[in-house]
């Protein structure tokens, strides 16, 4: 099959405009990018099938018909885009309602991990202590050097203390 140049140019432009919008932070813009991308993708699917008359038996000869298979796929894609649009719109409204804007913010947890990486530290979650617990921790929540050297010994010593508590 020979490619249709018009389709190819339109698909390219729709993708370019869609991606540019998609990379923005405003959710409304992202949504418009998604819609443009969706149209571009639908046309891209159609370039794979030949054009012709409507694929309805009786109105068009089988040889003249446009390819029905990509059309069926595109049809559901169109409706799914509608559902997606509704969802993203609801999302941007919700974001505006809660934060006063509809921008995608950076993830706070990820920022914290990046800070840890910058400081060359480990997560240290294991040593988050319960109030009544024994400990040999310094304020940073890291085990003290002694228990680092031999955790068995420190754990065992702690076990001993526990026995005395009991």
């Amino acid at each position: 099959m020979t490619p249709n140049l018009t389709y190819i140019v339109v698909v390219g432009v729709l993708f370019a405009a869609g991606v540019t919008l998609l990379l923005e932070r405003s959710l409304t813009r992202v949504l418009m990018g998604v819609i443009l991308l969706g149209n571009g993708a639908n046309l891209l699917l159609l370039t794979g099938g030949r054009a012709g008359g409507p694929p309805i038996v009786g109105t068009t000869d089988a040889g003249e018909m446009s390819d029905p298979l990509p059309q069926a796929m595109v049809l559901t894609a169109i409706v799914i885009t509608l559902g997606m649009t509704a969802f993203l719109l609801a999302l941007s409204y919700r974001s505006w309602h809660l934060n006063g804007h509809d921008e995608v913010q950076d993830d706070v947890e990820d920022r914290r991990i990046m800070d840890l990486a910058d400081r060359d530290e480990g997560p240290g979650t294991d040593d988050a202590d319960q109030p009544d617990s024994d400990d040999q921790l310094d304020p940073d929540g890291r085990p003290d050097p002694d228990s680092r050297r031999s955790s068995a010994a420190s754990v065992a010593a702690a076990a001993g203390e526990r026995g005395r508590d009991a």
Binding site: P3, Y7, I8, V9, V11, G12, V13, L14, F15, A16, A17, G18, V19, T20, L23, G40, L44, T47
Partner: peptide, 14 residues
């Protein structure tokens, strides 16, 4: 990035 993606997709379509 947008223009590059558009160009690549066009190429793929072709």
């Amino acid at each position: 990035i947008g223009v590059a993606v558009g160009a690549v997709v066009s190429g793929m379509a072709w």
